[in-house]
Design a protein around this nucleic acid. Structure first.
Lengths: 242, 242
DNA sequence: CAAAATATTCGACCATCATCGAAGTGTGGA
DNA sequence: TCCACACTTCGATGATGGTCGAATATTTTG
């Protein structure tokens, strides 16, 4: 056949346990094998087997720290492929109220590989476009002259980012909003900054993200970004909790 | 689990026979079950089973014409997911000289869903951008005032296309060139026109496309588009065959 | 109407592979 | 050194699913 090994890649993703692990890693962090085993509800032996296959297949990479072994997605492209598959997956049957809540949380804000996605990610990107901080150009975003002033003020080192060999700022289409948001090195840096500032925080045990009370206030006052009131109340958290 | 049925979709693609069928359908045309069975080198029974599963899974749709049943990709998103998977697939081992030729032909020119991709597709799009006939705007292309004159002259009914509910002109990233080219309704219309004019023609048994002798001449004289000389010689065909 | 072509369903066979128990490797701490 | 912990490898088991032969619609052709 003239086809590349798309079959291998797809069949790796097409397993319940492995998909569960990949979805957890789509949060962007590197996770130890034991936690991935727990996430997929399989024994460590089974998980180890799966992880080895996914490394072999080019989906994951691993780093050893002490007696732990951390796994993460091999590249940005892997994350994009996972999102693309999500986009064509049939609407999921919601099984419980708890799952419905988690689903809403995911739609509202989540990490996609290492940048912000969901309603918040899209709204933030839209707002930066409206303010003329960035501009869409093909599949990439470019920082405008206004943006070249704003980003450093916000605590983001543009030159440092540019020195890396990673894509500077790409468009990423997400499955829930079906619209674009900022990805690439700039998207990751912005997201990290938001975490550092305490405007957003991770929801433990998944890739959902919560916007904090200060986050809502500052996003509105500094950027003029607004979100649906109904969801706002439900997602506010004053203190990090489990 | 909180995950959608990404597992089902991925495992559908993760089968040798089904992937072969999907790759053929990525050309954009609707193909009968028998031809897909031949492409995947399986019996009609097996193919029928696979096709039913892919329809069930939302990857394909079918239309009945007489005693034939034509299958095609269910949506543009499916094509994009396939391209995304191709992008992370490991570099393909070329097994034979014949396959190498086919691989080169695919890189040079092919249909992607229903528009032109490969080196030719990218070059054509670049040239239209340089001539100011179209302009990139976000993920879409828009027709300029110059373009509004040029396209009808070329035999393309812009108003007719706009009346459809399909995306007018989108960007599409292909895996071989890793660059953009014109897709959407306008891209499809342009490609059809090139077929009608006899500037390009399908290579039987695949999604590769051949640029005819007149095609090369007219693309160069009318648009100023040029291609690599080395490949040019190998791909010229004087008379439409089969 | 008969014969050929297209595509489907049913049933059986067989290979693949996910899973886990048991045992092994290597690291960290007392 | 001994033990606990994280992870891996090996081997056996069981289930899923791809494959094709045979039979069944349905439509086109002669």
């Amino acid at each position: 056949m003239a086809t590349p090994n798309i079959v291998e890649v797809a069949s790796l993703i097409g397993d319940e346990s492995r998909a569960a692990m990949l979805m957890n890693l789509l949060g962007g962090r590197a996770l130890p094998a034991s936690e991935l085993a727990r996430a997929a509800r399989v024994t460590p032996q089974t998980a180890s087997s799966h992880l080895a296959k996914m490394v072999e297949g080019g989906l994951l990479v691993h780093e050893a720290y002490g007696r732990h072994r951390y796994y993460r997605l091999a590249s940005e492209e892997v994350g994009q492929a996972l999102e693309a598959l999500n986009a064509i997956a049939l609407p999921k049957p919601v099984r419980s109220l708890r799952e419905s809540d988690q689903s809403k949380a995911l739609h509202f804000a989540r990490t996609c590989y290492d940048h912000l996605a969901g309603e918040v990610g899209v709204a933030l990107t839209d707002r930066m476009l409206e303010l003329g901080l960035i501009r869409a150009e093909g599949r990439d975003y470019v920082v405008t002259t206004d943006g070249a002033k704003w980003f450093p003020d916000f605590g983001i080192d543009l030159d440092g980012i540019r020195r890396g060999r990673r894509h500077f700022a790409r468009e990423c289409l997400d499955w829930s909003e079906r619209r674009h948001h900022l990805a690439g090195a700039l998207g990751a840096a912005l997201t990290n900054r938001l975490f550092d500032l305490g405007w957003i925080e991770r929801v433990p045990g998944g890739r959902a993200v919560r916007v904090t009370r200060t986050g809502f206030a500052r996003l509105e006052s500094d950027l003029g970004a607004t979100f649906e009131e109904s969801r706002k109340g439900a997602k506010i958290s004053e203190s990090p909790s489990v």
